[in-house]
Nucleic acid binder design. Structure first.
Lengths: 339, 339
DNA sequence: CTGAAAGCGCTTACAG
DNA sequence: CTGAAAGCGCTTACAG
């Protein structure tokens, strides 16, 4: 029967019997732990590949008090624009995990419900946890601390007890800003998202540092936060035009997209009349005409790095408390000076 | 030590010893299977809640040859616009699974790589699988059939051997189209996505059926498929205006958003000059002014339904081969007739 | 109604 | 270098 087909699996005992050795030997050949003769090992290894033996990770897990699963905590409340970030992280995480025979269990939390995470921990279904974003007040993080579960966080936090992996937002934003300042641009504006998101603060910091380093003064009045609604952007863009801003920096592509469409409607030309740069580079802007200068992060790599860090922790290795990943600066038409 | 804290768990033997009964009895009290005295059962049940005993699902799984995991197959190659759909499905799935103490393992596949799915199956880490979309040529689906793993598919397919759960795209598109035809609108256009996606075909079918039922003829020339690039939309919109189309139906919000922005740029007023309706209702359009008439599906419910169906299958229950979920029609300003 | 025992498929001291 | 045995934490015929 078909059902039976799927269930029928060859076990370590089958292999042992077929080869006339003990289960112990087979186990050792597979795990590579313990002393074992080269020929015996090869004999076993050959047999299992030929017969498509696959170890039962559930059983192995029970014996070793491990699950070979990690949990990925994903927000059930998200902004549309954050989705590609999470998706790419997830891809990287599951690839890195799979490479070491770990699987990724998803656990969705909302601001007032982390029961899913609690369940997965109480049921001992995972060996460790990856937090996919950091918040100022982070309930899932507190839960993990309290339950003493190994975990890492994607994102940054001031809490030095948290192992964190993040894109180098400060460095990236600083570099892009510097580049444009060096072109001679002086009157700039910054449009940012939620000011309570740590990432918003980091990006702002990079923007500031660029001015500092060149001994230029930054105009606080042209820095806008919590830019989330369309009509707000509309209003701000009018402001910017009134003030004859030369270049507007957008903290994410959602903001940038709306800025662009506002400018287009008003028949303001990019880059002739105003320059535009984004601190992010998603599919959303990729095909825009003119091309939009932006930063680019590899979030799949970010996920991989986070996963590998966690797996190393579980392995008892020492890990660095904060890992920052690189970025690319993509210069396109939207910030070109007239020649 | 902290590490130890997390590992230390009370087992069924601890409970048995403390209560002076056998492990068998404790197991029976918890599972509810097998004969057991009411007082004994209550005694055990009380003890375990008081002492926060949590069964070890790994051990239970090994004993029952189950994993209490299901895999969710997610495409690693996706359109930005599909993300909210997957995210909402995932939310529903993980909620429904959690309610029955199942967990969800993600497995990302691309057109030329389903190694992740293969691994999770070969390693026997899951009891069943949910496919999150159906394709015309579906490699993951073939793999599941071949490996004889229980599975369900979110989406539709002609393959009657596949248990499928889907939104009622045909019914929904038919209803919205009918509603507008009944308002007296006659010259319509349809802008659709990839014609190889089954969902595209379903939506077109509903559109057609509406005309049929009212004995109206539908103009094939104003039906566009594979509308994916911005410049294509631009071109089509000009066509539509030339032909004095009264109402344009968009198959998804991405298309719709671009149509709207095209019209805006050309200073064509909605709904005075042309009416617009979308067969989807995402965050993307939610706050548009004017409000856009659209269909609305509950993809979280869809995920729940899919998960519950799979869990029922695993339980040996009979399940219906195709489940269609309901929808809402949201009438807004974009399709209002002048009074 | 209750329990002793074997078993799920692996790992790992301990002996040899 | 190899193996017999106990154990991971549960379930489930089989007896009583």
């Amino acid at each position: 029967m078909s059902e039976a087909e799927y269930k029928k699996k060859i076990t370590i005992s089958d292999v042992a019997d077929a080869l006339g050795v003990s289960k112990t030997t087979v186990s050792r050949a597979i795990s590579g732990k313990g002393r074992i003769g080269t020929d015996t090992r090869l004999k076993v290894l050959n047999y299992i590949t030929e017969h498509h033996y696959k170890p039962n990770f559930i059983a192995r897990g029970l014996a070793q008090s491990k699950t070979f699963n990690i949990a990925l905590v994903l927000p059930g409340d998200y902004y549309l624009t954050e989705l590609p970030f999470f998706q790419n992280c997830m891809l990287g995480i599951s690839q890195a995990a799979g490479k070491k025979d770990y699987d990724v269990i998803i656990s969705m939390v909302t601001p007032n419900d982390n029961s899913q995470l609690e369940r997965v921990i109480n049921n001992h279904k995972v060996d460790g946890v990856i937090l996919s974003r950091t918040l100022v007040q982070d309930a899932p993080l507190e839960l993990l601390k309290q339950k003493n579960v190994p975990y890492v966080a994607i994102g940054s936090t001031e809490d030095r007890t948290v192992v964190q992996i993040d894109n180098d937002h400060v460095g990236a934003c600083k570099e892009l800003t510097s580049l444009l300042l060096m072109q001679g641009i002086r009157k700039t504006a910054l449009l940012g998202g939620n000011r309570n998101h740590i990432v918003t603060q980091k990006r702002f910091q990079g923007y500031q540092e660029a001015f500092h380093e060149m001994n230029l003064s930054m105009d606080e009045a042209t820095v806008y936060f919590d830019v989330e609604e369309t009509y707000v952007i509309e209003k701000i863009v009018e402001d910017l035009l009134d003030q004859r801003i030369e270049c507007v920096f957008c903290m994410d592509d959602y903001i940038c997209m709306h800025v662009i469409s506002c400018l287009r409607r008003k028949n303001v030309k990019i880059p002739q009349d105003i320059k535009v740069a984004s601190f992010y580079n998603s599919q959303m802007l990729k095909n825009n005409i003119p091309g939009i200068t932006s930063l680019q992060f590899n979030n799949c790599e970010l996920g991989m790095a986070a996963c590998n860090t966690l797996l190393n922790m579980l392995n008892g290795e020492m890990v660095t408390q904060r890992t920052l990943l690189g970025y690319d600066v993509i210069l396109k038409e939207s910030t070109q000076m007239k020649h």
